[in-house]
Design a binder for these strands. Structure first.
Length: 596
RNA sequence: GCGCCCGUAGCUCAGUUGGAUAGAGCAUGGGAUUUCUAAUCCCAGGGUCACUGGUUCGAGUCCAGUCGGGCGUACCA
């Protein structure tokens, strides 16, 4: 609906009333927003004030000009009431026409996309997310990248972009050297046969503590202290094992090939539970053959040079830390891999954009990476670091178990489902297996929703108690709203296809009907805003508003018991609300149930 | 030291890139059920937007500084 302003603004520009650069037009249109207060109408435009300043005009005068043009535009008049005079310093407040809203809702009822348009210029977007290290079990730190990345991929695809999701697995770095080193010294064949990833996880944790553990961490564990005494040079030896793997050492390569399938299977199991899929899983190992070329080419083009035995790109002068692409011992770094990856993706996928859904702590790395890529001349692709904050525990410290270990993702999901089961279990009428299914949907949904509903840039406090609340801005509240819609339609024995076909008019006489309809019609705008800043929390906030509008509508007005023609109209609204809510949750990777 | 991010109600957080009287949820207090899922709805209280100055019609938002916190900072990813 915002778009209706564009004609009037173009007109202004063409008439030379004010100079509006074409590229500013969309940001001006973005300034058309839903009003803070219903008494100001439905939408409000604030562009007159800003434009007046630049043009040296009086804001109200300019607002009147815009209003005149709006009123003349047939496209505008079809959707909005004739606008009144500007309010205050120059607000242009408009109200959607009842007949236009009603017609739009009716069209949405019959449309598989609810009237949400496909983007005008679809782009090819690579979304790089999750990217766990395969050598260690996935933990709570991976949840944000996985959940946010998956949601963004779903949303961009729904908007009409060509999306390519890629899981850039950490399957080749130092952490694998740790496993190799540890396996050779205290690997347990029997334990590996029983539960491969558990054994590899044990080795990883032990070696990590040996190589970068704090003194008190070492002294707290007698066995660990012994190992530390026995292998004082563990850190260096680990790097040596990593280097051997990269050089193609037969023994290490064989072990790598032996360990990988179990690692991958373990990770896949988590993705299945989370309902997350990838188009590609091109890990670090895949790009290994291209790394030498990256360094050579950077050197040859005079971008990288030797320093203290290593090779790096000096981006901010000689005194600032360079972007290292090769270590003094000859090994490559993840900077090298990331550069090779960009190059490979550009050559094979020709993307317009690449999104990296990665922890904000790696901001500097991406600044350097993007700068280097541009200097290297890798083309005019948009490289975006979609950063997010840390997951914290109740104490405000990074989320850990009481023993101080990181929380495994598997057990986290288990606990979410288990707690959801306790909440759902109050209804004895439900069969056990169905209850289990509902608990799974509610539990996993709660974990995802809690994460997505937070502004991604801030750290967030992980709390099962809060995310599983049945009231407030939670997955359960939203899923409940969907289940209530199902309940009404089921109770009325309504065939939804027939309902959609036979609906002839949507009546919006009651303010609650109107508010619900207006909210539903904002779906497309919200998705547009989500993409603009890669912020799924705008979608959760809107879903919450929508569910609240529905609850309010449902509470105040009879539906099945209403008389015609209200009954058919309200049933159509119910059906549409349910579908839109379900679609919105699906775009977040969250499932729904028919009963709960 | 330098760089990036953050500081909003008792708690957890929004705040649409500078807009109208700073909003939700939880918690607290009150109310609604002969009626489609009350896992709901309606109403109320609760704020020096860390602090100081600046920019302008207008600042939680932009600029400068101060205080407090987090993260990063040459061969881990």
């Amino acid at each position: 609906m915002r778009r209706c302003f564009s004609h009037a603004l173009c007109g202004l520009a063409d008439d030379g009333v004010v100079a509006i650069p074409r590229e500013d037009l969309s940001t001006l249109i973005d300034q058309v927003r839903e009003t803070a207060d219903a008494k100001f109408g439905d939408y409000s435009g604030t562009m007159a004030m800003g434009l007046a300043k630049k043009a040296g005009r009086k804001p109200r005068e300019l607002a009147v000009e815009i209003i005149t043009r709006l009123a003349r535009s047939p496209e505008f008049a079809a959707i909005f009431e004739p606008p009144g005079d500007p309010v205050g310093p120059g607000f242009i407040n408009v109200t959607v026409r009842a007949d236009a809203l009603s017609a739009a809702v009716l069209a949405a009822c019959r449309d598989a996309r609810f009237g949400v348009p496909i983007v005008a210029d679809p782009e090819t977007v690579v979304i790089d997310f999750s990217s766990p290290n395969v050598a260690k079990p996935m933990h709570v730190g991976h949840i944000r990248s996985t959940v946010i990345g998956d949601a963004l991929a779903r949303i961009l695809a729904f908007r009409g972009h060509r999306t390519i999701t890629d899981n850039h697995l950490g399957d080749w770095g130092t952490q694998f050297g740790m496993i190799l080193w540890g396996w050779k010294r205290f690997g347990d064949e029997a334990a590996f046969a029983t539960d491969p990833t558990a054994e590899l996880g044990r080795i990883y944790r032990t070696v990590r503590k040996l190589t970068d553990g704090k003194p008190d961490e070492l002294s707290a564990d007698l066995g660990l202290a012994d190992l530390a005494a026995k292998y004082p040079d563990a850190g260096r030896e680990v790097l040596l094992e990593t280097a051997r793997l990269h050089e193609g050492d037969a023994e290490n390569k064989a072990l790598w090939e032996r360990f990988m399938p179990a690692c991958l299977a373990d990770i896949e199991k988590i993705y299945r539970r989370l309902d997350v899929t990838f188009d590609h899983r091109l890990g670090e190992s895949f790009f290994h053959p291209f790394l030498a070329f990256v360094v050579e080419d950077l050197q040859q083009k005079g971008l990288a040079r030797e320093s203290r035995g290593a090779i790096g790109v000096f981006l901010d002068g000689d005194d600032k830390p360079p972007f290292l692409v090769r270590k003094a011992d000859g090994a490559f770094l993840y900077a090298t891999t990331d550069l090779a990856t960009i190059q490979w993706r550009l050559a094979h996928w020709k993307p317009d954009r690449i999104l990296y859904v990665v922890d904000h702590r790696q901001g500097q790395h991406f600044d350097q990476l993007f700068q280097t890529a541009r200097r290297w001349g890798l083309g005019d692709v948009d490289l975006v670091h979609v950063a997010f904050g840390t997951v914290l525990g109740d104490d405000g410290r990074p989320f850990k178990t009481r023993a101080g270990d990181t929380v495994g993702l598997e057990s986290l999901l288990d606990e979410g489902v288990e707690r959801a089961l306790a909440v759902v279990a109050t209804d004895d009428a439900m069969a056990t297996d169905e209850r289990q299914r509902v608990a799974t949907t509610v539990g996993i949904g709660a974990i995802k929703y809690a994460d997505l509903s937070q502004n991604r840039t801030t750290d967030y406090v992980f709390s099962f108690d809060k995310m599983l609340q049945l009231t407030g801005n939670t997955a359960a509240y939203m899923q409940y709203a969907v289940a209530r819609v199902e309940g009404v339609l089921e109770k009325g024995g309504i065939d939804r296809e027939t309902l959609r076909r036979s609906a002839t008019e949507i009546l919006l006489a009651d303010p609650k009907e109107r508010a619900l309809a207006l909210e539903i019609m904002r779906f497309g705008e919200v998705l547009e805003d989500v993409e603009a800043d890669y912020r799924p929390n705008l979608l959760t906030a809107w879903l919450f508003d929508l569910a609240a509008c529905y609850s309010s509508f449902y509470d105040a007005l009879p539906i099945l018991k209403a008389s015609e023609p209200e009954r058919a109209s309200r049933l159509a609204l119910c059906d549409l609300t349910g579908r839109v809510l379900r679609q919105g949750l699906e775009l977040l990777g969250i499932g729904t149930v028919r009963k709960m």
